[in-house]
C-alpha cells in the first residue's frame, strides 16, 4: 500500500504494509536515521517524533495511522540545527553516548511549543517516557530550561550560542 506523509515539510510517498512501524519507514524507506530504535514497545522514547505537532513513539505507530499527516523528525526540527533545544543541548553538553538524545529533544521541543516556561515538574512529566541509559537527566533538565531561555530571548538562527554547530567535527 502507498501512504503519503508530510515529512519535515516535504510530501513523501512510501509503499509498505499498513502495519509497518513509522520508525522503520523513516529509518529505512526515507533514510532519516536520526530517529532511533530502542525498545519497539513505547518504553524508551528513543523513537520520538512529532505527528501533527504531538510527540509520539514511532516504533508503535503503524504507518497507516500517519497517512496524510505531518511528521517532524530530529532532522527537520530546524533547517540548520538551531532550534533552541539543539543549541541548549550543546551549550549544556548533555549527551554521553547520545543515542536517546534525539528522542529527548523531540519530547522537549513538543513541551516548549505548549509551555514556553516549563517547571521542573512539567519537564519531568513531558520527558518521563524518554529513558536515558547513561543517566544524563540532571543535564537534560538544565538544557530544557536553557532552551526555554533561548527561545524567550528570541535567539535567531545562527546566534553566537549556536556557533558551535558548524564547527568542529
Amino acid at each position: 500500500m502507498a501512504y503519503t506523509l508530510k515529512v519535515n515539510g516535504q510530501s513523501k510517498t512510501v509503499d509498505v504494509p499498513a502495519d509497518t512501524p513509522l520508525l522503520w519507514v523513516l529509518r529505512e524507506a526515507l533514510d532519516l536515521q536520526g530517529t532511533k530504535f530502542g525498545c519497539g514497545a513505547a518504553q524508551c522514547g528513543a523513537c520520538t517524533v512529532h505527528l501533527n505537532g504531538v510527540a509520539i513513539r514511532s516504533c508503535v505507530t503503524p504507518v497507516v495511522s500517519a497517512n496524510g499527516k505531518a511528521v517532524t523528525t530530529i532532522e527537520g526540527l530546524s533547517p540548520d540545527g538551531t532550534h533552541p533545544c539543539q543549541i541548549a543541548w550543546q551549550d549544556v553538553d548533555v549527551p554521553q553516548c547520545g543515542y536517546c538524545q534525539a528522542g529527548q529533544i523531540m519530547s522537549a521541543a513538543a513541551l516548549l511549543a505548549k509551555k514556553p516556561k516549563p517547571t521542573d515538574k512539567d519537564i519531568d512529566e513531558a520527558l518521563n517516557g524518554n529513558l536515558c541509559r547513561c543517566g544524563t537527566y540532571v543535564r537534560i533538565r538544565a538544557a530544557v530550561h536553557k532552551a526555554a531561555e533561548l527561545a524567550a530571548a528570541g535567539k535567531p538562527a545562527g546566534s553566537p550560542s549556536g556557533a558551535r554547530l558548524g564547527g568542529r567535527e
Partner: peptide
C-alpha cells in the same frame, strides 16, 4: 564539550 554533540542533536547517522 563532546565533539560529536552537534551531530547528535541534529540526528546525523553516526551510530
Amino acid at each position: 564539550p563532546g565533539t560529536e554533540v552537534p551531530k547528535i542533536v541534529t540526528g546525523q547517522p553516526i551510530f
